[in-house]
Nucleic acid binder design. Structure first.
Lengths: 152, 152
DNA sequence: CAACATTGCTATGTTTCATAGCAATAATAA
DNA sequence: TTATTATTGCTATGAAACATAGCAATGTTG
């Protein structure tokens, strides 16, 4: 079998695709963020929830899930876990709906998570140093919205 | 508990973050691609491998993993599965290295996967209609490379 | 009141990727 | 040549994020 055309750089009709680039970029940054948050014992989703609850005290679990695109089925154990750790307080508003708010410990964690996320955002600045992030933001927003149109 | 400020649109200090946008955009498009590929019984990683092997017949499994950022441990069952389905042929070049190539059935699948991926890329065109994708490509490439610098 | 929708939840599976460790083989150094 | 080291493929295992199916309790609507 002829391998003479297989020096180190492989022929790659994949990496030129926007979808693949998007995937790799996202996974690389998720690894970075995940590593940072691991130091305070949080996963990205958990940090996201703490921050969102912090900005919306009293919000309903299902609203949260809708905004974050997380299904109810996956929301339940996430919230339970954060409540079990003493970060979230649930209080029924309804009989079926639960209003969420941060405990003191939760607010402390939110603050730390927020700092880590800010630092993480600064990595984008380094990587894209000088570039205007506006177009990137706009296009990613459009993609996120456009792709979500079909999914339920 | 005061919920008067909690009309439908939640306060969101998360969605403005580039990292979160990237994540949502990627996951939305992955869902789109995954749905398309499911129709021919392939997962995104599998399609990616078929296409890459098709462009590099005789390539070594570990090179493949390096290019795609897939660990050896995860590469093994992927390749085994594709070989078991009759899409990939393995032939030892070394005693330890395996050269990969597409079978006829594999080439047929590669072709179909390629068409689905092209159609998927066309969704980006729709969503970003008119926008120049150049900057997006450049920035995502930089992010993918920059984020990978740290990871092993 | 009856029919329907929403909410939280359990159970379960899928996809992608991570670590730890092993045996066989190749490459390099002594 | 031999000894050390690195590479390759592999297994086993788990984590993270997400999906579907279905249930009981509650609210909303006709």
């Amino acid at each position: 079998m002829d391998r003479s055309n297989l020096a180190s750089p492989l022929n790659d009709p994949i990496i030129s695709r926007l979808g693949y680039l998007l995937r790799r970029a996202s996974s690389a940054m998720m690894a970075d963020l995940g590593g940072g948050l691991a130091e305070i014992g949080l996963r990205p989703v958990e940090a996201t929830i703490l921050i969102l609850v912090g900005a919306n005290p009293g919000c309903i679990q299902s609203d949260l899930g809708r905004v974050l695109g997380i299904k109810r089925a996956n929301m339940a154990p996430l919230i339970s876990s954060l409540a079990a750790k003493g970060y979230l307080a649930k209080s029924p508003v309804d009989g079926r709906s639960l209003a969420l708010s941060l405990t003191d410990a939760g607010e402390a964690m939110r603050s730390r998570a927020d700092a880590i996320m800010d630092e993480h955002e600064r990595r984008f600045d380094e990587i894209l140093n000088g570039c205007d992030q506006g177009p990137l933001r706009a296009m990613l927003t459009a993609i996120a919205a456009g792709g979500a149109e079909q999914g339920g």
